[in-house]
């Protein structure tokens, strides 16, 4: 919805805004790309947008990797189609469901389809409301995703030992963000956190 509002401010037509949501379907990448949308599209500016999209979305690469132990036993034709529309939100909800002991993979796959329709349709009222919400910051909309992410850490809390990789990841990410432009910090932090978990002692290993 917030994306529709942003697209309207940047001079996209409603059909273009919905098309981007339907095809790209990656909230953060859409925001970043539209925010820095080039005035004229040349092959090189399209390449720049592509690179930007890739760096913002590298996390989907990691998300896919984290799903392997769960969905790896399913036949490929059941896994790959839903994966093409996987999202942060769907993934977070499904991961939590699984942490509670749920094992039904259709929860993840079905949830993705539902999320897809809501997200795409929600861009329309956002676009139409855009002139009223001149500045999304007034309503804290720009902090929606960080707030949702942070809240997710609570149910996945499993003792201080298991949180050490999170701290390492966040610290590395903040540092890389400060050092380099772009979105490499997500990758750097997540990889650092994950690798650090590999070297932690036994207590952290017996979680599951």
């Amino acid at each position: 919805m917030a994306f529709g509002a942003l697209a309207a401010q940047k001079g996209f037509s409603l059909a273009e805004a919905v098309a981007m949501t339907g095809f790209v379907y990656a909230g953060m990448a859409q925001f970043v790309a539209v925010q820095s949308w080039p005035d004229t599209l040349t092959p090189s500016s399209i390449a720049a947008v592509m690179l930007l999209t890739a760096t913002v979305n590298v996390r989907f690469f990691l998300i896919g990797a984290s799903l392997r132990p769960w969905l790896g036993t399913l036949p490929a034709w059941q896994v790959y189609p839903p994966l093409t529309i996987s999202t942060d939100t769907g993934w977070l909800l499904a991961t939590r469901y699984r942490d509670r002991g749920g094992a039904d993979a259709s929860y993840f796959l079905g949830g993705l389809i539902v999320t897809y329709f809501f997200w795409t349709v929600a861009a329309v009222p956002g676009y139409l409301l855009a002139e009223r919400i001149a500045n999304p910051k007034t309503f804290g909309i720009d902090l929606l995703v960080p707030a949702f992410f942070a809240a997710f850490l609570i149910p996945s809390w499993r003792g201080a030992q298991r949180a050490i990789p999170w701290v390492i990841s966040g610290t590395v990410a903040a540092f890389v963000d400060w050092l380099t432009p772009g979105y490499w910090f997500i990758i750097a932090g997540a990889v650092a956190g994950s690798v650090s978990a590999a070297f932690l002692t036994e207590e952290s290993a017996n979680g599951r």
Partner: peptide, 24 residues
């Protein structure tokens, strides 16, 4: 590898959120 994958979700979240807090 299992431990690495288990730590991945929380790490991705921390890596997304903390820089936003620092710069925001």
């Amino acid at each position: 590898v299992r431990r690495m994958l288990d730590a991945l979700p929380g790490s991705i979240i921390a890596a997304c959120v903390l820089p936003v807090v620092v710069s925001g």
